[in-house]
Simulated scan of single mutants.
Amino acid sequence: MTHERATSQSEGRKAKTKAYASIAAVVLLALGAWWFEPNWLYGWLKVLHVVAVISWMVGLFYLPRLFVYHADAASDGEPSATFVVMEQRLIKVIMNPAMMVSWAAGLWLAWTGFGFSGAWLWIKIATVIGLTVFHVFLSRAARKFAAGENTMTARKWRMANEIPTVLMIIAVIMVIIKPFA
């Protein structure tokens, strides 16, 4: 049985190209700004970091939700094929680039703004490591779904969906409240 793709491959390539071109432009601008070290650089990298984190978190929240519905779909049906396309594009076009920009900008901010000092910062970094581990787990799960080898139920995916929420709350508390400053 052959499946029609939910969207064409050329549309996917166009979206991917636009995403990578945007990321490249931002990275080039950031490198240029870093080279010249203007006063406004720290603030704009903070903006970049926050936007990247929001984009990454959206993916970390949405992908497990897709898995909930995908787990209930027949593995050889059209809905399953559509979920595979959606999951792969979410990971490759949004989540992976957003995670990389979050890490790069975040580490730069941690070094420049705080010199990697403060227990609150290390707890925040630990939560980001946890989010990264969860991201890798989701990426591997997407590959299993694509191969028709998912082993988790929709209920388990609903429960897994709470992991990034808890880690995000801890990270936000550390950044805003700085309880161990």
Score class of each variant (00 low, 15 high):
R5G: 11
T7P: 00
S10D: 14
S10K: 14
G12L: 04
A15I: 10
T17W: 11
T17K: 11
K18S: 10
K18P: 06
V26I: 15
V27Q: 02
L29G: 13
L29F: 13
W34K: 12
W35P: 01
W40A: 12
K46H: 05
K46G: 00
H49C: 02
V51C: 07
V53L: 09
V53G: 01
I54R: 08
I54W: 11
M57Y: 11
V58D: 04
L60A: 01
L60W: 01
L60C: 01
Y62W: 14
Y62R: 13
P64Q: 09
L66G: 02
F67C: 03
G77P: 02
S80T: 08
A81N: 14
F83W: 15
V93K: 12
P97Y: 07
A98I: 03
M99T: 07
S102L: 05
A104D: 03
A105C: 08
L107E: 00
L107I: 08
W108M: 07
W111Q: 12
G113C: 13
F114S: 14
G115H: 09
S117Q: 14
A119I: 15
W122T: 08
I123F: 05
I123E: 01
K124T: 03
K124E: 04
I125P: 00
T127Y: 03
T127C: 07
L131A: 01
T132Q: 03
F134S: 00
H135Y: 09
V136D: 12
R140N: 07
R140Q: 06
A142W: 01
A142V: 12
F145K: 05
A147M: 08
A147P: 01
A147Y: 08
E149P: 02
N150I: 09
M152F: 09
A154N: 02
A154Q: 01
W157D: 01
A160H: 14
A160M: 15
N161S: 15
E162M: 10
I163Y: 04
P164V: 08
P164M: 09
V172C: 05
I176R: 07
I177T: 06
K178D: 06
F180H: 08
A181I: 13
